[in-house]
Amino acid sequence: MISFLTISIIQATVAIATPLYIGALGGLFNERVGVVNVGLDGIMLSGAFAAAITSYYTQSAWMGVLAALTVGAVLGLLHAAICIEFKADHVVSGVAINILASSLTVFLLQLLFNNKGQSPSAPKIGQISNLDSIPILGPILNNMSYLTIIGLVLILLSHFFLYRTKMGLRLRSVGENPYAAQSLGIPVRRYMYLSVIVGCALVGLAGAFLSIGMLNVFTKNMTAGRGYIALAAMICGRWTPLGSLGASIFFGYVLAWQMNAQGLAIPAQILEIIPYLTTIIVLAFVAKRARGPAHVGKIFAPSEH
């Protein structure tokens, strides 16, 4: 029997969606200021790694979270510098970050733990507990990671920031037409740098959830393309926080259902295709109408304009 909606599927959906929507939110803060970031996957992987080993050495999961944010921010600064300062192609920089992250993490694993596959186990981020007594919601909320909640709060805060504050309006204008923003006295480059750095820090946070939120170890290339799915969720969510959340939950559900359906007569390999196939199909249909910020991926060069 294939079931479509059980408590365990819902729980798994939320857990799987968490790094997707935090990652999509991070991607959004990149693209909203006109910077394409296909390095999401690599930054997520670096965040996961930093979180696991910091948590292991300090024996504090929250120090791990802090480390993931920091590593994300540093990679964000790198990406911003390459795209904004040196005016390089955004995609090339993103791809370089992905390659860097996947090799460097394995290298460091070997160096620190003499193990190419995974890190030693480390303390996990806390979970909600003792809510069994509440009907319906209780079992769903039980065992939910604090990071899931923090992620949801971040989505709501970002929505408020983008659409209800002065800085939010200015930030949106930068990715659409930086020259117009500049002509109105908005410090375009500062907005670009800060937004990319904050966005990438969030992607690092999404990585922390993978290693010390869901599990308690870092394993080699553990993102398994989740950074790209987060990017897809951002596009399907039309570059909005709430839309990204919705799309992430949808992708989360497909992945959760797929895992739930394992062990049935269907070959596992075919089931594993489903989430990625769904991503492609949804993107093909949604992306046609979804339009990103007008200046995304282009070089901002005021003097030559």
Partner: peptide, 21 residues
């Protein structure tokens, strides 16, 4: 400006107040 400095995806009102909201 000769080439308008407008943010096409935003509303008329948002374009007017942008930077001096």
């Amino acid at each position: 400006h000769q080439h308008f400095m407008l943010v096409e995806a935003l509303s008329v009102l948002e374009n007017i107040i942008l930077g001096a909201e």
